[in-house]
Design a protein around this nucleic acid. Sequence first.
DNA 1: ATACATACC
DNA 2: GACTGGTATGTAT
Length: 590
Amino acid sequence: MNDDFDSDTGDDDLFSDDINHDVPFHHAGTLMELNDNKAGMADLDKEKISRIIEEASKGSKFYDHKKKQQERIDAKIADLLRKKKAITEEQLKNASAKVGQIVRNLEKSRDLSRTFVHVDMDAFYAAVEMRDDPSLRDKPMAVGGPGMLATSNYLARRFGVRAAMPGFIGQKLCPDLIIVPPNFEKYRAVNAIFSEVFAKYDPNYSAMSLDEAYLDITEFLRLDQNVRKPSDLSHAEEVVSDLREEIFLATQLTASAGIAPNTLLAKVCSDINKPNGQFYLRPERPVVAEFVEKLSVRKACGIGKVTEQMLNALGITTCAEMFEQRALLSLLFSEISALSFLRVSMGLGSTFMGDSDAPAKSVSNERTFKATSDADFLRDQCRRLCEELSEDLVRKQLQAKSVTIKLKTDTFDVKTRVRNLPEATWNADVLCRHVVPMLESEMAPKRAFRLMGVRASNLCEKSANQQSTLDAILKQPSGTERLCPVCSTSLAKLSLALVNAHLDRCLSGSQQDDVQCPICSGFFRRPEIEHHAATCEGAATSTTPSVKSAPIRKRGAAREDGFVPRDECQRKPKKQLTLSAFFDQRKSES
DNA sequence: ATACATACC
DNA sequence: GACTGGTATGTAT
């Protein structure tokens, strides 16, 4: 069902714009079909695969939802076509002139001087599992669970078993399919190893996930120039070949790579000779032009299934066609979309790498469960999500000024509700007090939910205000009694962590007279908290060493693709947020 | 500004 | 039997 219906509308363009003398590329009309079956012919042909998938999901709520979704897309496309019909020749001519100017400017800005590499590990999770269990090597297998597969090996792909496919459908496509549960700790460890190789070629490399990264090897090439012997391959190819070899020697895993003058093209190129291959796109304008002409628009990062359908409906499949229709697109889409289409069609991409330590804009936590309308369960779930989110925020030293609740009904419809907080916080209880009412106003006797999520946004680093408050307290000479600046009660007997907990509650406006335990998040009256914390911490520290810092350097999904069951990957056991960890994080700042 | 949609891995 | 989770960004109202 998730297979694309080729809405191959014929070429009904009334407008051919040959008034442009600024066409950067001569786009011939050759529609070369890109090989879409990568690793050998399917054991099951496409027809059969779609039929099995169709049968497996027909009648399910998921399938119904997909159908509804597709109807909305179709309506949007119909709208688009209506809009197109209403466009006059004159409007198009004007647009054409405007776009022409943009094209000239873009062309002027084209930079072919840098060398980018996109490195992508081949079937990463599956490859790791096969490496460590030779009995899997000659069998179709996938990593994931019965609910969702994260990736599959190349043998399984021949049966149509793919990432982001539910496990039970994978089993239907390939009855012998072995499904291995993911082991994210291991993947992280392997990632740490080949990341060292990346760093050698570009200390500023940018990791997109555990299995892929962008490198700017311009500088490396410059320094390496004199050291290297001549060979058939270009310098860049030689270097990237070495890089892949080093990854293999270090991990026994293969990687594919794309080499190109910008990140957009590098990404496309890394897919061409996968697995265990690389593709070099020479940094010459005609070479880039020819390459991009034949490129399916879908290959461009940012053009997904929906946008592809819309473009297809306009008769646009390749980048050449997209370039031809640039004036039309500028009239049909927003400025920002039209510009991004234009850049893609000209083969322009980013020629500098994103700041790897840009601050996160949101932190969220969501979980799917058996659909229910049970209010107690939902409230409970909500509290748990808030507590976990709070841990994440503390870990990242961020506070939220807004919280969002996300709910998915049993029919897969998603609702979100935001609320702005009076003050930035990371306190679980505060989050919860704002989220639960939003949950409650969405609950209805007949409405069952299958997922709930909580997101913190409008983030700020732990506020200077609060930090200085804490500093001020801590810097009081020992011997003087520490008083809370908010409620003026004595904090002398509390450990640093508990001072923090107290401050959080005071600063976030809590009127209550109890203190939250940073370990179990429970609330206790002040006389009881010391005793409680001692027990709680004892239990916690005996099992856990410390909070580990993630090996990933960049924000983003820590996955190759598809599903990461929370409990198996990032979420440490509850007790991981120990008193000492809590302590360390704050202490290190004062 | 809020909600919803799309995209990426 | 059972279609994910985390983050960013664009679009619509």
